[in-house]
Amino acid sequence: MSEGTISAVVGDASEAGPGGTRALLEVSDLRVRFARGDREVQAVKGLSYSLNAGRTLAIIGESGSGKTASARAIMGLLPRTAEASGSVRFEGKEFLGLSDKQMRAHRGPDVAMVFQDPARSLNPTMRVGPQIAEAIRAHDQLSSKQARDRVVELLTRVRLSAPERRFDEYPHQLSGGMRQRVMIAIALACSPKLLIADEATTALDVTTQAQIMNLIRDLKRDLGMAVIMISHDLSLAASYADEIIVMYAGQAVERASTRDLFARVRMPYTEALLDAVPRLDRPPHQELSLVSGRPPDLSVELGGCSFAPRCPAVRDDCRAAAPAFEEHDPGHWWACWHPTGEGT
């Protein structure tokens, strides 16, 4: 879309637009450190990206890759033992360094988050409706009647069956998929501009997962939200995200539009992730290709590429110096001295 028509709040969803409208979210050189006893764990080591309104970014990685820590840093929801540095700008406003009270004004209307485990995120002793109403009334002065109407409207929006009845039910009376819908309703209560879904469908069945992901996709389209989906599942990201960042050991190692990434994977780690997943189009009993070893200890400073100890294509220079994460092809970043060549 052409820039400069209207000072658009919502970026055009059909175009990547580098250098188009100002990004909704700009993360630069984000670092998160955890104090673990006398050691310091570098969970996120200099992550940078920007996200426009109406777009979906997927951050992919294994446990401990720093994907969740980076998202929590945006929300100001890191535990006390953690320290974030760098910059997180939301509509130009710096989020890092805000007090919890200041941050609370942004959580809800600006950024909202949906977590993996809806059972643990909901208060089991409180009926569903009032929990959602609480989220609304934290920001808007509404009478309880108005709040109730708004809650029912939200529950309808997240396609929960019989919303009037659900209002007075407890979380344990709902299935996992229904609870996740309630969590999304809470996240949507203040019409956020950015929704962060942290493994939001990982605990759900495939059919429920598809329902919830389609719901998030439709809400994104209808409300013009931006979405960051955090997942370990590359094929899920392939189906729903516009852009993908692959993280390993606290760093982004590959970033591209979904189409470019799958057309030509350059980072051996991304390739390893793809090859390790059982696929329906392969016959049974086929050996999966493997990388051995484990992710590195993040409390130890590594010389060289962090994936080098496990990389099937490793060479001497990989251990000597860490490759920079750079835009090698237009719109395609990676951090590798010897990127994989084959593509389709």
Binding site: A210, M213, S235, S239, R259, F262, L274, V277, R279
Partner: peptide, 9 residues
């Protein structure tokens, strides 16, 4: 089967 996300967009 239809609900499974496909890895190749």
């Amino acid at each position: 089967l239809d609900a499974i996300p496909r890895p190749d967009p």
